[in-house]
Computed example of a mutant assay.
Amino acid sequence: MKLRRLLLLCGAALYAGMCLAPGASHAETPAKLLFSAERSPSAGQTQSIGFYSDGCIAGAAALPADGENWQVMRLSRNRRYGHPATIALIERIAAQAARTGVWPGLLVGDISQPRGGPMASGHASHQVGLDFDVWLQPMPSPRLSAQQRETYPFRSVLRKGTFTVDDRIWNSHYRDLIKIAASQREVQRIFVNPGIKKKLCETAGRDRAWLSKVRPYYGHDEHFHVRLFCQPGSTDCKPQPAVGSGDGCSELSWWFNVALQPPKPKKPGAKPPKPKPPLTLSGMPAACRAVLSAPVKGSEAVAAGSGAGVSSPASYSAAYAPPASAVPVPTPRPLR
């Protein structure tokens, strides 16, 4: 049955040029295909294993597809699983933002796959259940249907062709939502576009301690990315270095003067870099092999997170998944 799922997944991943051949071993198969094929969390105690961009998660919990103050987007991707602390944090941020009048509801993007691990597309991190994305758009009213959430367009908050925040879109509520997220004790860092970081530095006022967690990075002009610390009990989780105590605003000159400058033209006849071979299970933390082969978590736990109108992640994917080419994805870096 797993082999059949992997073969079906390959049909949606032809762009990568890598599909599982009948009889191929796990050791030879790209890990992103193995983990993307898993539709349910593993049984057992919750454990984040490895680093954010090289690991997996055992015993993940599901964020309900619909909550009082949030909606999960792109349900067919089946990436709404994470550490229970991550799920609780999303619900708390959504409730606090709504209660204070900052944000009517979150549009939640990718968290992690049911067993974490590398994804077939879209992210290098989000592998251990401690990362999640929040769209930089408030939840609309009326709410989006399941089908609408598949193609609802991303929207950059930058002026087209620049790294400057568009004040026709941006207002203090955007700043305050990011501040609410950054002020949570579980949050290790938040990734935003350098243009957004610049705007936050200019408008934060005297209370600037939270800015140390907000880190500039490529892309991230349509959403912000929240990362939690490794959680108690996950002894094999590898932490990321601390962000430091400053507000981080002095770093921006390097981003605008160096990192975001157009790349130098390649020399005529220069050979393209050799592509990096795909990560396989043998290159991941050893415990991830057991996570991949573990039995499915109790059906009642999966059903509890399936959300209104969706019987299960697997059945939703079969019913509503559009062609991969039809689903818009965030740009890897902002346009100049």
Rank of each mutant, 00 (worst) to 15 (best):
P322T: 05
V134N: 05
A97D: 03
P194E: 03
A146E: 10
S234A: 12
A97F: 05
T100H: 14
A24I: 01
S121R: 12
F224G: 00
S40M: 05
A182S: 07
I90T: 03
R336W: 08
L228S: 07
A303N: 01
K160N: 09
G117T: 09
N69P: 01
P241Q: 14
A13L: 07
D236N: 14
A181K: 00
S312C: 06
A60N: 11
N257F: 01
I90S: 01
L33C: 04
I90L: 10
A181W: 00
R215G: 00
I169L: 15
A85V: 08
A270V: 09
V214G: 02
A303M: 02
A24K: 07
N193F: 02
A301H: 10
M119Q: 15
H26P: 02
G109F: 00
P140R: 10
K271E: 13
S183K: 08
A16Q: 11
V226N: 02
L63R: 08
F256C: 04
P322W: 04
M1Y: 11
A43K: 08
A95N: 07
K238W: 11
A182H: 02
R5I: 06
K264I: 01
F132L: 10
N78R: 14
I49R: 03
A146T: 08
W135T: 12
G129T: 07
Q113V: 00
K264N: 05
I93F: 00
L34Y: 07
S325R: 11
S42K: 05
R185K: 14
G101S: 10
Q188W: 08
L3Y: 10
A181G: 01
I87F: 10
P241G: 13
E38Y: 02
Y52S: 10
S234N: 10
D131V: 11
P285L: 11
V165Q: 02
A21H: 12
F51A: 15
Q231E: 10
D166T: 09
A43G: 09
G11A: 08
C10N: 13
S293M: 07
A88W: 02
